[in-house]
Design a protein around this nucleic acid. Structure first.
Length: 487
RNA sequence: GGCGACGUCGCCAAGUGGCAAGGCAAGGGUCUGCAAAACCCUCACCGUGGGUUCGAUUCCCACCGUCGCCUCCA
């Protein structure tokens, strides 16, 4: 079966057929860089990371663009998020942007999220945005208000609302309307705003000194780097309205062409509130848990395992217990990988045990069939778990296993668990000078302990094991020797 | 009020018109000097009520419940 994607645009799974064979152009809405990223962001970007990795694994040439919003994203009060943070910390706006952009990449790198090919910033694409706004005005889809702001005229675009299936007249008009608004229709949205004196993030434009609306950046930058029509647009489901909807309307109105062909939206990460009711994790609610904090307690692979344990479209509820369960499941898989690599150190040459290659092939097929089904990562992980049982049986059994088979096992884990899902580390632990020395010392202690065990001096052998355990090193005795790992 | 998603074993979570993956936890074994790990065994009739069908957890309707969005949020 070939790849199918659930297209939010049509609320159905559809065979994936890129515009240009073998090539995928993809855009994902990135973060607003005014604070550290939290694990809700991790869910979205790890999810799309796996999408990109799997597409590449499947042989597609992917161009992945993910923007950074650094201007125009306003608060209820009308204040720009970036400016507010700058005022609070007595910094200039671009310092804030730089600080949190670096923080964002630091977190994503730590989580093993492959960087987008292009990470365009809104503030770096003001001319492109102005140009698009001009086109919209020319075509009669936007107007300059009496206060000098430019708005998109939703009544000029009948298909407005097609992604979220909303009829503008059905919405409760004025629910959160700004009383100062000078729009023709409550649903009209800002393309360009005239800057108040204190609004120092400002640019010249045909309509006066001001700044772009939030939505126009994605349309302008997607157009610049991916063309008028591209394959996949991704983001969090919480931005389906108004943001994604506005992107579609203004892009299709300006370019006379379909915007994105497949829309993929990721379910929200929730966190229990004080009463235990799941609530969306968000910066504004203040109930967020930063990626940096999560990484202090958990390995990146475990955080990925937690996120990928549910299908990307579904919401997940965050808790330490859930992360803990993910950790145990991950340890099971990684334990088999480690055992494989340990055996590889001393494996005999040859094809012994090569009947196992069928099992590997079957696991790969199962994995691919899950991932081809709208990137069903939980199904992919299940395939890995089932493989892991077979690997454990093989490696703990009596039959000799040759190097060829061990290498094939390792390779399967590297590709499916490493390359695609990013939950299997490349190498055990890094081999820096001090790490090598540490490893040597641990092996020395294990040798001494083996001697103590041979002498039935269990008091000493247990002492060594206990003291190593206190240092975070677990020792396991196997029939063919002792293995160890750092917790 | 409108739009959308969801409700599957103690917990997490896939899935299918024809006897319900996987993980965690739990109980019982095997192995071990003792552990640990691993392996084996045990552990669900799919929110409620209707309907369609030879047959529904899977399709349709209603209801109950939960969440998201309705111009701050990945």
């Amino acid at each position: 079966m070939a790849l199918e994607i659930y297209n939010v645009l049509h609320r159905a799974k559809e065979p994936f057929e890129p515009l240009h064979e073998g090539k995928v152009n993809m855009y994902v809405c990135g973060p607003t860089v005014y604070d550290h990223a939290h694990i809700g962001h991790a869910k979205t970007y790890v999810s799309f990371d796996v999408v990109v990795r799997y597409l590449r694994y499947s042989g597609y040439d992917v161009l992945y663009v993910q923007n950074l919003t650094d201007v125009g994203h306003l608060l209820d009060t009308g204040e720009d998020r970036i400016l507010k943070k700058a005022r609070q910390t007595q910094a200039v706006p671009m310092q804030i942007v730089e600080t949190y952009t670096r923080s964002y990449f630091e977190d994503m790198d730590a989580l093993g999220v492959v960087r987008p090919d292009i990470s365009p910033r809104a503030s770096g694409h003001i001319p492109e945005q102005i140009k698009m706004i001009e086109r919209l005005i020319e075509k009669g889809h936007a107007y300059v208000s009496k206060d000098g702001n430019v708005y998109f005229d939703v009544t000029s675009w009948p298909s407005f609302g097609k992604l979220s299936n909303r009829q503008i007249e059905d919405q409760q008009a004025g629910v959160r309307e700004d009383v100062r608004e000078d729009k023709r229709h409550p649903a009209d949205f800002a393309l360009w705003k005239i800057a108040e004196p204190e609004h120092i993030l400002r640019w010249d434009s045909p309509w006066g000194v001001g700044y772009p609306g939030w939505h126009i950046e994605c349309s302008a930058m997607a157009h610049k780097y991916l063309g008028t029509t591209f394959d996949i647009h991704g983001g969090g489901i919480d931005n389906i309205f108004p943001h994604n909807e506005c992107e579609i309307a203004q892009s299709e109105a300006a370019n006379d062409a379909e915007f994105a062909r497949y829309w993929m939206l990721v379910g929200t990460l929730m966190v229990p509130d004080e009463f235990g009711i799941p609530t969306k994790m968000s910066k504004s609610l203040g109930n967020f848990y930063t990626i940096k904090d999560a990484l202090k307690l958990h390995r990146p692979e475990v955080i990925r395992m937690f996120i990928l344990g549910a299908h990307y479209r579904n919401p997940i509820v965050f808790s330490e217990e859930a992360l803990d369960a993910a950790r145990r499941g991950w340890e099971r898989i990684y334990g088999a990988v480690r055992l494989t690599r340990e055996k590889l150190r001393t494996a005999p040459e040859g094809e012994a045990g090569n009947a196992f290659l069928d099992t590997l092939e079957q696991a790969r097929r199962q994995f691919i069939s899950a991932m081809d089904d709208d990137f069903n990562a939980p199904g992919g992980i299940a395939a890995l778990h089932e493989l892991t049982r077979e690997v454990n049986i093989l490696l703990n059994g009596e039959q000799p296993v040759g190097r060829a088979v061990l290498e094939a096992i390792d390779q399967t884990y590297r590709e499916l668990g490493g390359q695609v899902l990013g939950i299997v580390p490349e190498e055990a632990e890094s081999a820096s000078g001090s790490a090598e020395r540490e490893e040597g010392l641990i092996r020395l202690l294990i040798e001494l302990r083996a001697q103590a065990r041979a002498d039935k001096n269990f008091q000493l052998s247990d002492l060594i094991r206990d003291r190593l355990s206190e240092l975070g090193i677990t020792v396991e005795d196997r029939p063919d020797g002792t293995v160890w790992r750092i917790n």
